[in-house]
Design a protein around this nucleic acid. Sequence first.
RNA 1: GCGAGAGUGGCGGAACUGGCAGACGCGCGAGACUUAGGAUCUCGUGGGCAACCGUGGGGGUUCAAGUCCCCCCUCUCGCACCA
Length: 876
Amino acid sequence: MTRSYDHRALEAKWQARWEHDHTFHVRENPAKPKFYCLEMFPYPSGRIHMGHVRNYAIGDVLARYKRMRGFNVLHPMGWDAFGLPAENAAIERGVHPGGWTDENIAYMRGQLRQMGLSYDWTRELSTCSPDYYRWNQWFFIKMHERGLAYRKRSAVNWCPSCETVLANEQVEDGHCWRCDAVVVQKELEQWFFKITQYAEELLNALDTLTGWPERVRVMQRHWINRSVGVEVDFPLAEPAGDVTALRIFTTRQDTIFGATFMSLAPESPLVAALIAGRPEAGTVREFVQRVSRQERAVRTAVDREKEGVFTGAWAVNPFTNERIPIWVANFVLYEYGTGAIMAVPAHDQRDFEFATKYGIPIRLVIQNPEATLNERALEGAYEEQEAAGRLVSSGEFSGLAVPEAKERIADYAESQGIGTRTVNYRLRDWGVSRQRYWGTPIPMIYCDGCGVVPVPEDQLPVMLPADVPFTGKGASPLARIREFVETTCPVCGAGARRETDTMDTFVDSSWYFLRYCSPLETTQALEPAAVAYWMAVDQYIGGIEHAVLHLLYARFFTKVIRDLGLTKVDEPFVNLLTQGMVCKETYQCPRHGWLFPSELAGSEKDGWRCAPCRDTGVDSAVERGRVEKMSKSKKNIVDPEHLIATYGADTARMFSLFAAPPQKDLEWSDAGVEGASRFLQRVWRLMIELTGHLGRAEGGTDENGAARAREIRRLTHRTIQKVTDDVDREFQFNTAIAALMEFVNGLYKVTAEASKGGRAAEETDALREAAQMLVLLLAPFAPHIAEELWELLGHGPSVADQPWPAADPALTASERLTIPIQVNGKLRSRIEVAADATEEQVIGQAQGDPKLQEWLGGKKLRKVIYVQKKLVNFVV
RNA sequence: GCGAGAGUGGCGGAACUGGCAGACGCGCGAGACUUAGGAUCUCGUGGGCAACCGUGGGGGUUCAAGUCCCCCCUCUCGCACCA
């Protein structure tokens, strides 16, 4: 009699019910504590993938749990709907990006509903809707007013494949973050957000983000990379045109007496001035051209050989008044500092390599405590920055420890007017112009008379025109739409041109979490009272890949919006959970490369063979490859839709929560899915069995029945305790589910026993409680089956509105304990004692244990360790 | 090179502040019920015949170490000439 549950009908039933009853609709309620639970919203690519399933299952357990714990839970969902794939689809298939996106959203919304996620769908937003992106434009204008959005001409990252500019954060190892094409440098005039104005706060506030994983904080800290130093002017030995001095930035001003040459970045405009009319000019120009042709990623690799040429020009070290040569070197970056450095070979490894290669003098000016360094026999730079290093050959500063010398030399430079203390960041301003169509139009107008003029607020949104030819060639698609480009100047009324670039889509995702607080607001971007109630996000959940992209931009935007007075929160995300990737094994054929599992012949036991090879009469052994992140190219994708259709959403959720803790990578396993499904079936059968008995009053009281009832209660309340602890403590959903499995296993045992004889009334009560608690504890994890079982137990919907059960400590305690007994730290026996037994009683009983006589007999007892309720250890 | 994290059965993974290593699941083995079982239920399952040995390797602290300290190895991820 296998009465298995029909997940299809049951899940559809409850999804419809939740929707009909508006079960997950929330509004502000000052009487209740709030909890804002947010998962990173998806790009509507067409279908959800296993990473989404995992991400949203984790978030949903937390949202449902917090709800049962009495919180007013905000749990919204939306769409990061602008972006290049829609535009590419338009180019390739001749469909409109908007239509393509809408269809994808409709399909994926259906998929998410099938997962049974407790979203408040009334708050759904889509960033490509004018209702949303008009506020991007409004923020842009506000930032422009404050000088936080500005236009400049500079070298920018250009992806030739996406045909657009990229921000620094969007270049990974010299390649485009999206399409992996090699990024080149291009000189363009572009819009930037002045994120560097917030560099100091973005850096310092990282220390307050104690709810974030350390590695994300480290990555952001490193990305911002603050350096404290001084800018010092080195006068030229003879002026070169207008140029009379070279300004350098250094953090090692303490080594300035050891500077024996200087280097300029090849891109520096000063190079041309310095070499003008010199015999070296030809060689230098050749070098600069050769270096600038190199890919940036290649040129800036740390193991790249240091190269340079002498310009023929000389500068004067303002501290020693010595003439030192000026070089151009490939390792000097034009964008950082002043694009020029003083080089101290004795105390900087790069300078050391360079000087050694070109025979430039090396001067030791920091000596180690043992005074063992010999200027003429250095094998590498001595880079000590702590007090251990002492200055030598440094004039009046000789003898000072490095940290003090830094201060004194900076003081001196400032007092003499030759230098200034400066802080430099690696963080650059965020280039937000994109030469693409499917994004937010930048609300700016160019007037020949008035210059750059923002679109007046009452004219927002600047609508993205619907009819645009997509050729995939040339400049911004918007630039070809005359009706769009041609406009009138809001100031003088003369003919003017609109900006035709759109905004980086990361702008859209930089404040969507704020918009969820008041998504239907039409007159303002944010409704301050709603934002004040809901913000900040209490738990944010998503992939690690956004550690310095989205997560940095969102922090920046939150601070800007705070400074606009729309919110008081300094940081958007109090707690951050970066979930691991979903991985699966791969298969590789020596001839065909990656294979789908369906392309495998043979068997696991006898070795896999390649089916495409076999079809052409060749026998190729297939290697079971490494476990890799699911990806199309590696042909190891599992479609969640198929999973849900076959096993149901509850099983899909249970599997992805049980197979690994959320922070770690999850390895896909068909057997693991089976296991999750089997567990739910087992729960179902148990509950059918139990409810069949619960109504009937059987038997009277008997001793065994009473004892069994206590046992059931103990198991029930220990499970409540364990599941609650596990969910509260670092999202240990896998062990929480394990506890539920143990609970079910235990209940199977007691019901089997009980059904043999009569059942005491208190036992029936205990079982009734156990059944209820099981359903409640299961509800956040497998909500559909939990609702159905809750109904089976005779309750009305929804189990999601029930309070989370509380463990009764009086019921969790055992009456008897099993105490392990060690001799010299090795387990030799166990004894059973009363829970309230005294130390003397336990030790006495242990000493009398016959099994221990072999180990204790005839030996001198040196010490007895007693850990209350834990163990006894005899040292002999 | 710097930074973060990880290394535990055949596999995924447990073990909160040092206190019974291997919970739970998968797999495997045996049995029960069955015409049948790839369903379900029950029992077993780190290695070794044993003494014993077992948490990447080697030292150490401790009555007691997966957990703490020192040295080393491997893997994953991130950053990478930032002056």
